[in-house]
Design a protein around this nucleic acid. Sequence first.
RNA 1: GCCGAAGUGGCGGAAUGGCAGACGCGGCGGUCUCAAAAACCGCUGAGGGCAACCUCGUGUGGGUUCGAAUCCCACCUUCGGUACCA
Length: 839
Amino acid sequence: MTTSAPTSATTTPRGGVERYDPATIEAKWQERWAADGLYRTADRVPGKENWYALTMFPYTSGDLHVGHWFAMAPSDALVRFRRMQGYNILFPMGFDAFGLPAENAAIKGGLHPQDWTYANIERMRGQLRRMGASFDWDREVITCAPEYYRWTQWWFAQLYRQGLAYRGEALVNWCPSCNTTLANEQVVDGKCERCDTLTEQRMMSQWFFRTTRYAEQLLANEDLDWPEHVKLMQRNWIGRSEGAEVAFALEEPTATGVDEIRVFTTRPDTLFGVTFMVLAPEHPLVRQITTPRRRKAVGEYVQAAARKTEIERQSTEVTKTGVFTGAYCVNRLTGDRVPVWVADYALATYGTGAVMGVPAHDQRDFDFAKQYRLKVKVVIAPYTGKAKARLTEAYVEPGLAVNSGQFDGMPNTEMKTAVAAYLAERGWGGPRVTYRLRDWLISRQRYWGAPIPIVHCEEHGAVLVPDDQLPVELPYDVEFRPTGESPLALSEAFVNTTCPECGRPARRETDTMDTFMCSSWYFMRYADARNPIEAFSSAGAEAWLPVDQYTGGSEHATMHLLYARFFYKFARDINMVTGDEPFTRYFSQGQILGPDGRRMSKSRGNVVAPDDQVARWGADCFRAYLMFLGPWEQGGPYDVDGIVGVSRWLNRLWTLVVDPPTRTGGPEGGPLASELRRAAHSTLERVTEDLGRYRMNTMIAALMELTNTLQDARATGEADRAAWDEAVELLLLMLAPSCPHIAEELWTRTGHGQDASRGSVHVQPWPAFDPALAARDVVEIAVQVNGRVRERLELPADADEATARAAAEALPKVAEHTTGHEVVRVIYVPGRLLNIVVR
RNA sequence: GCCGAAGUGGCGGAAUGGCAGACGCGGCGGUCUCAAAAACCGCUGAGGGCAACCUCGUGUGGGUUCGAAUCCCACCUUCGGUACCA
């Protein structure tokens, strides 16, 4: 690599001392480590415990951005630390390579998605190498490679065989610009996550995975060593609700013999207060029960609702709309005749798609009732006082049942279970749990994804492609026209095939799989990435799974991280892996922002290019600066001016080691020697602890402090040679995780590691911390009077309270504030302070 | 609206019941230099004082405590998630 060195660094050699030149040493060591296979992973190493560390693989967008560095560089530092602690490490890297942008680039620029993707991978590999991270490239995974997606298809087949993959007609989110369906998670504010176009609702035949079957297991995430807010996000996303299902009798059964409307409610205690029913516009019963006279109005309403986008639906929040179907049903508990309405505040995709209207005790129902002058019936009264005769809003607080037949007088919290049980007894419904989580829609009408391994046969319907015929390969030669059908549908060579059951002509499924499918199991493939006959071997799984430490952004909390958990539980159920969870520990780093404190984007012109930073300052410096910026979990603005501080530090450190003090003839074990030694060992304590708690910023600060101490020692001259060498050696070992190149270079220059595979600083054991060496024997404590600091005092570290108090009281400034007052109390915190409380 | 995280010098941040501002940026002054850059040294929360020192100060208001940035209550602001989920 030939990048221009910092303008200042090479121009003026200082007194003949060689200057720190990151470009040269970084290129040298990257080559050397690769040649020595320093980071190649064996499944087992005698005497070492395995540790699987993973950082989320990048999408093949073409360039590594600062966010990738911010995620990966500290992850690499943690890995290097663990490696030095004696673990056998798996730290792989790969590429999330399927997805829409490649295809959009193809439509726009005439580049084939595959060529676009592989060119990007080539580029990104180089950028990742220059990071100096200790990835094991021998296990690289590329999700768009047939050797990989063969197994993605295999997973589909497994799920299909277990009844967890199914085809269903469903109302789906449709992006008119991308011409494809989107998962709920990919719709942001009613807009397509990728292109910001308003999405629509369409009814289509799609492939789904039954994620809801695992809802309860996915919900149980409390014990994971993950950030609490991420676990909470997942729980909210799954959204478990306890309540009851209630069947209302239709007054007139439909032509097809349906005689009930089923609703889900979390408030069975308000069942006596039902005054109307609401069906979602897409509810299958709507057409069937609407009376001839209402048909026109209902038809128009349903059509209008279908045209509405998510945003429009949300903007109607103030006024609820709906139409009466003309039909009635019966509340079996009361015998009441209840009108059935259609309204789009009922969601087709939640619960049963129908709602019982209890205006007195639900604000939405109240608003609707007010709008259409429907009856309001109070069935819960406050514990104290009387129910209001005329409500101005729904009463949603707890209370006692009224107007509720045999339940009158019962606290409503009790009544919930009582009514549910009563319903079950009569066969009118019963207790029920519902989740907000929907099944995972995996169909995409796009080319650049793994084809769904299904063949449609006239006689046999949807037939799975046999495992031995996988992969179903993507044809290279296709036309890219955004028609709303996958370009695959236009490829005769792809579509036309034969039925695996009967051998007669059949058509291939042309939908491809959501790319989240590829990333749901990539971490398992790493365990045995080159296996040509299985997704991975059980030996590989035993050696490495589950992942010990996962790092990545929390923007994946409700998608990738949830899907990966689903996949892992499924893998467990088909005996592929052991354990229940894929990621034992997960750490989510914050987001790095532009210098202006806003999200980096080309349109704002606030993008910082990592390549430029590396060229100017070196990879070590850039890595360390990203760690030094602030708490890793917080992220924050990238200040382009601040990095110079880290650069200065590395320069000073370099000079200190390359040009050590000349007068190191100080007395052995003198005061300076013990001070140096103490500083080195207390730094070791801090750095070890900080790394263990992901506190990269204070870890770097501690290393800077030790460097400053060494510099002071050099300035004063009288350093003990042994103490100096020990401190430098410790500093370099502690520097190795964050700044691997300079640490390695200085390590060899201080007489270590001639044979890189054995002598590399990166294979040294992490130094053991000795508390005795880190301890001070004289400490300064604060002396307070009534909580105000009045004086400072030097004391032996083990001084007792009486000694401390006597010394404190002898101080004139303390006496000034205590004489003439009565001492009420004395608080002594050894090593910290002495507080004299007077009256 | 609901859920979550966070508010500390000019700036990024440190300190999670014990000396607020570690470490770094920026600024000011100095050494070296013909000069500049680099490097190095010193100062740098605010107000007052010639000074030693004193007072104030961690979003706002209250509380607990010998002692609160840190714990409790109420509120304000910013950022993230979610949003008619019955």
